[in-house]
Write a protein that binds this DNA or RNA. Structure first.
Lengths: 121, 121
DNA sequence: TGAACATATGAATATATGTTCATATGATGA
DNA sequence: TCATCATATGAACATATATTCATATGTTCA
């Protein structure tokens, strides 16, 4: 009764048990995969990509970034919060001004690999 | 009139012109940043992350993947299409069965860097 | 203390997106 | 050719999310 090993939602009756079992054994734990998706979701927005690229070059205040991207301060602030929660940026206050900078060494590698993928084909 | 150089949407009057200009010069072109966000958006979903992780281990057919993830065939097929459009997977037909496998060498690096980020802190 | 300014935040809105359901397509074998 | 099976696809629905607006917070300086 090979069929019994499959989820009810999959209507197929002939699949490759050995393959599925082998893969199942090496799959990372659910939580890790969820976190990974959450991380990439943060990168999956043009505004945040732009902010990160800007911060590759220099620490910037919220207003700098808003001016650079021609977006309003609130939108930038909201996105910086997302980046901060993902521990991708950090900030420091200097008087009224809040400066943001990158807080992760892996981002650059990830971006470079992504750009390599894009430039192919 | 420093204010005139800023977008109307940014209400700040005191920002760092030099920084903004310097950053503006090194920013990648708009289209490239858009493509990069689109790529990461593909990685920003748990189902697709799981599919990719599974394919790290072995080529699989649609039904295999559906069984592995306990999801229905249609959902998997839709997501495989997204992955294919992003040129992350390729497929080959063998009779009625369509086998999918990874079609990019950078994915593994990107995932590993992402996992490094997650495991920190 | 109060005005001015940079930033943060909550609510609302519009848009994007993942899954499901129903059904179409394409291949096999009798 | 017809039934069966694996996969693909379009429409619909529910949910997530980015931006805007209005306003709050926190700092500086007079």
């Amino acid at each position: 009764m090979a069929e019994k090993t499959y989820a009810d939602s999959c209507l197929c009756s002939i699949i490759h048990d050995d393959t599925v079992n082998k893969v199942r054994e090496v799959m990372p734990e659910e939580e890790k995969l969820y976190d990974l998706a959450e991380l990439f979701k943060v990168f999956g927005d043009t505004t945040r990509i732009k902010i990160i690229c800007a911060l590759f070059e220099s620490e910037m205040c919220v207003c700098d970034i808003a001016a650079l991207l021609s977006m309003n301060q609130s939108a930038i602030s909201h996105q910086l919060r997302v980046l901060k929660q993902a521990r991708l940026v950090k900030n420091r206050r200097d008087g009224k001004v809040m400066y943001y900078s990158l807080d992760d060494d892996h981002i650059k590698h990830i971006f470079d690999q992504g750009l390599l993928h894009i430039s192919e084909g």
